[in-house]
Design a protein around this nucleic acid. Structure first.
Lengths: 260, 260
DNA sequence: TAGTGGTCTAGACCACCGT
DNA sequence: CGGTGGTCTAGACCACTAA
């Protein structure tokens, strides 16, 4: 055992039942998981890079390889890490094709492949956060935010009209030019240029009628039923960093979901 | 090691690389998982009942407890089993409140709790499978199917109009009376009375306008945008056993989804 | 208290990858 | 070949539940 091992004290605290059913015992591997998450958040290991081998981590933290393994397993299940047998364990990134459009659940009705996709930035401006956006992003009302409006086309046909809200302070320097110049998924840009990695998201879906602007942009008749998708994206420690309202045209596409 | 252990032969086959990259090594715990799944499918252990303890299973299959543990872990992650510390491992069931409406993703806009729900059977008849339903259920066109139409109300207000297609042979004896008499979720009835346990499902969502019948039934104006949810439910070994088309009124509710 | 699942360890060996 | 993750074992001990 390593002498300055940060684990032991916590272990005892868990067993001691000090306060009224609050922490209630935290397994070692959970603590390791916390330390690894801290390393990810702090940028000690950056997206796409490998983290140290299990043996190294076990030595560093003064625990067995099996304990590290369980911690890494869970982080991999949460899509924070990617295991690659024979090569190592890597920090997940939005740049690889496999994880590129992980959060976009729209599929063409015919043909499994998503097909060629194009993104056109319609607008990118900065303004003060309205109440609802501020609350969702845990900002004060009136704090600066960035709003992006963009059109997503599948196979040349417009399909998704997005309105994206981001905390202004965190996305300083983001503008239409940079968005337009960037190839690849927007979350890749956020990750590389603004140190903000989207970990998970929750969505609320509704059916609504197309208003005049949406109808024109998406090339459908006014009042056409559209899928309204409201997304909140979270980064490390469940901190919300994006509100996205998308209008999906579901004439030739559908939103796909697996229920397990 | 137990002498008639069914594992060894497979192990060797995996290492021998007999054919051109087909099976490619199957870990022991995967084989155990297969044996456990077989026991579940065959009804050796029924929904709600405990399976043997890890130590017993390890002895029966001639492997270590750790190997059984990994198999059970995966089955629990897939919601086929439920672990309960200090009590045992149980076969998952659609009867318990926790897993009761696991596949219904509709939530009220205000207030987290789904609130009181009522199901009214509008129709239950038997007819010959149309092409699309037959293909989805892997039946021949014209084979007998059951169609159920039912209305789901939240808090007294109609919200979901469902059309449910089931293979007739498997659901012999299902009729409106039995559906009406049954309290609780429909999947609970299917599980108890027809030996059919829904394991997972996939859904396709679209926005559509309400037709005359749907509008009247759901109490909305014709052409009101509704969420069309097409679900295919699967039982063991990914066998499809239900096609469900639901029209969701999203005036005061929304479809909730977590993206991980 | 006995029995269950949950954690942790130490060590062996295997499958896969790059060099 | 050496290093990585992946599998498997055997055994110790802990946390939880029910009787």
């Amino acid at each position: 055992m390593c002498s300055n091992c940060p684990m032991q004290s916590d272990r005892d605290a868990g067993a001691a039942t000090e306060t009224l059913e609050t922490p209630r015992f935290s397994p070692l591997y959970q603590q390791i998981k916390g330390l690894l998450t801290r390393g990810l958040k702090s940028g000690e290991w950056r997206p796409g890079e490998p983290i140290p081998s299990e043996i190294e981590l076990a030595a560093r933290y003064g625990v067995s390889q099996g304990t590290v393994r369980k911690a890494v397993d869970e982080l991999a299940a949460e899509n924070l890490l990617v295991r690659r047998q024979g090569r190592g364990t890597f920090v997940a990134t939005h740049h690889e094709p496999r994880t590129q459009f992980r959060f976009l659940r729209l599929r063409p009705d015919h043909g499994a492949a998503p097909g060629p996709m194009a993104s056109r930035i319609l607008e990118c401006k900065r303004l003060r956060a309205p109440v609802d956006i501020a609350r969702a992003l845990r900002l004060r009302t009136g704090e600066g935010v960035v709003v992006i409006r963009r059109l997503l086309s599948f196979d040349g046909k417009p399909v998704v009209l997005d309105e994206i809200w981001l905390p202004g302070a965190q996305f300083r320097g983001l503008n239409a030019d940079r968005l337009g110049a960037y190839e690849g998924p927007m979350y890749g840009l956020f990750e590389s240029e603004f140190d903000t990695r989207m970990i998970r998201a929750s969505e609320k879906l509704r059916a609504v009628g197309a208003d005049a602007v949406a109808a024109k942009t998406l090339g459908v008749a006014p009042a056409t039923p559209l899928l309204l998708v409201e997304r909140i994206s979270y980064t490390y420690e469940d901190r919300p960093v994006e509100v996205r309202r998308g209008l999906y045209s579901t004439r030739e596409h559908h939103y796909f979901n697996e229920l397990a």
